[in-house]
Simulated scan of single mutants.
Amino acid sequence: MQRMGMVIGVKPDMVDTYKRLHAAVWPEILALLADCNIANYTIFLREPENLLFGYYEYHGSDYEADMAKMAANPKNQEWWSFCIPCQAPLDTRQQGEWWAMMEPVFHMD
């Protein structure tokens, strides 16, 4: 299992929209996440900085293939069409990232 952490901004005028979207995530998206070997997915919001911190556990054996499968899914692309306009990616993210991935530095079981 891999533990994944990531961060992105949320536009101040879109915080309520983002919260509303995630209060009722579409069942197809939840099923797709599970099908792509993602569990314990949680998104935290820090206001007033308007930062989103995402955490999930990846239980598969081919992360790149699972992420490609997720990105290619038409329902997920529709979901992203609502979420992406709410987000403000960090200028310091790596090439090809939307959410900036974070390095794990501590974990306690």
Rank of each mutant, 00 (worst) to 15 (best):
L45K: 00
A34C: 01
L32H: 10
M70R: 14
Q77C: 07
S61D: 09
R93M: 06
D109K: 14
V105K: 10
P89Y: 07
T42N: 01
C36K: 04
V7R: 13
N50D: 00
L30E: 04
A100G: 06
D62N: 11
M6T: 07
T42L: 15
P12N: 08
M14T: 04
K19P: 05
D66N: 09
G54D: 05
M108F: 07
C83P: 01
N76A: 08
E49K: 12
P12C: 06
P85F: 10
R20D: 11
G60S: 04
A71V: 00
D35N: 08
W26L: 10
E49R: 12
A68D: 12
V15N: 03
T42R: 03
E64H: 07
Y18N: 04
A72G: 14
I43F: 03
F53T: 01
K75I: 11
Y56C: 02
T42G: 00
P27T: 06
H22D: 08
Q87I: 07
A31F: 05
D35Y: 02
D62K: 07
I29A: 03
T92E: 14
M70W: 07
P104R: 13
Q2K: 15
N73M: 08
Q87W: 11
D66V: 01
F106Q: 08
L45F: 03
M67V: 09
M67T: 09
H59L: 11
F106T: 04
F44R: 01
V15G: 02
A71W: 08
G9R: 14
E78K: 15
F44Y: 13
D16R: 11
A71H: 11
M67C: 02
N37M: 02
G9Q: 10
W98C: 04
E103S: 05
A34S: 08
G54C: 03
N73C: 08
Q95D: 10
